[in-house]
Design a protein around this nucleic acid. Structure first.
Lengths: 196, 196
DNA sequence: CCGGGTTTTTGCGTACCCCGAAAGCTTACG
DNA sequence: CGTAAGCTTTCGGGGTACGCAAAAACCCGG
């Protein structure tokens, strides 16, 4: 598992770049920060930045993608006897509403970052990839749980529907004034899905 | 409505650019065609291209976005007495499986184009915007039909879930070998949604 | 049919992004 | 240790996207 110093250093650089990208972008806006700045913050050449991420937007959203994948793993880890719907809602509530922000990222940076990504056209495309990552992670976990026939669309459809529900709840949460707890929005969204 | 020659010309230019972008990209791949080429094909300057579209990818997917919006309009146009689920499935089947390709685009270009967009990383982000456009169009139509309270998440969740189902069916369709009719995939996907 | 006001197109310049290649350093391992 | 493998860096180029100001195209009232 421990691939030695080399691998650890690589992951550290990656995290540092992603976090710096997020922080700086929150502070100065998407156009106010250059790839050069992010690289400088981490102490690495601009070219190296692009060895890790193929775009500035990708770096900014990298931590969110990581989290989506953790959600998939969490669903896989639930007891197989648990009914699918319960397993999903338990996973989603624990991972998204549990203050479980990735990798020592300050809560405030995370919240403001999400908000900014959604408000900036140049980053919406990348955010949609985060959502897609969530869908993929959930779908494959669902497929593993149910051991559905290979051709079935069910895992993708259900995974995508759940990802959509999380997304709708998150949007509403970020714009709610006065603030509403994310948990209750997630519960509402998952409820709508079940009753359709 | 008719804003005179001026407006008509603008729309014509827009369509021509979008179609040229799609055709050329199908023929030569995303990196094989420059903005310059697309502009030349239509007989306008490269600078003008960017007056209409803020990126090459946006132009390529513009027709698909237009179609998503037509789907929303179609849902609004269904009889209000019809139950929501029926209205949705009728709309989706008619708009997506009905060979209803936008604006005189050859079926083959449309099919190959979709395939290429989904296979090209540089364009996946833009495709996700198409899916998001579908979600928005459906959501707002659903909200209009149900006249739900302003704060409800239901329209977004259901609209997004349906968009996801369409998307999953489309993916499977494009990769099916031997070919499976899109209609039956859509029916399956919508079915999974209803039974979850 | 024609001139003034408006909108669109265009050319030019700029800032930035992303990537390929080759050289330089660092880590891994016998 | 010393050689092999892997990352980082430097350099340079091809493209994209957009601000700005001048030129062209269009619309309308006289």
């Amino acid at each position: 598992m421990e691939q030695g110093l080399r691998e650890r250093k690589k992951q550290a650089t990656r995290q540092a770049l992603a976090l710096a990208a997020l922080r700086l972008t929150v502070e100065r806006g998407f156009d106010g920060v250059l790839v050069e700045d992010i690289a400088a913050e981490v102490g690495v050449s601009p070219r190296t930045f692009n060895n890790y991420f193929s775009s500035k937007a990708e770096a900014i959203c990298a931590l969110a993608v990581d989290r989506a994948q953790r959600a998939g793993a969490a669903l896989r880890a639930r007891p197989p006897s648990e009914p699918l719907r319960e397993a999903i809602s338990a996973t989603v509530l624990a991972e998204l509403a549990g203050g479980a922000v990735p990798e020592h990222v300050p809560d405030r940076v995370w919240f403001d970052g999400l908000r900014m990504v959604l408000a900036t056209p140049a980053m919406q495309g990348e955010y949609l990839r985060v959502r897609a990552a969530m869908q993929d992670a959930l779908s494959s976990a669902i497929a593993a749980r149910l051991s559905t026939p290979p051709g079935s669309l069910l895992p993708e459809v259900v995974g995508g529907a759940v990802a959509t529900a999380c997304d709708a709840a998150t949007h509403r949460w970020l714009h709610s004034d006065p603030p509403v707890p994310l948990r209750s929005l997630l519960e509402e969204a998952l409820g709508h899905l079940a009753e359709y």
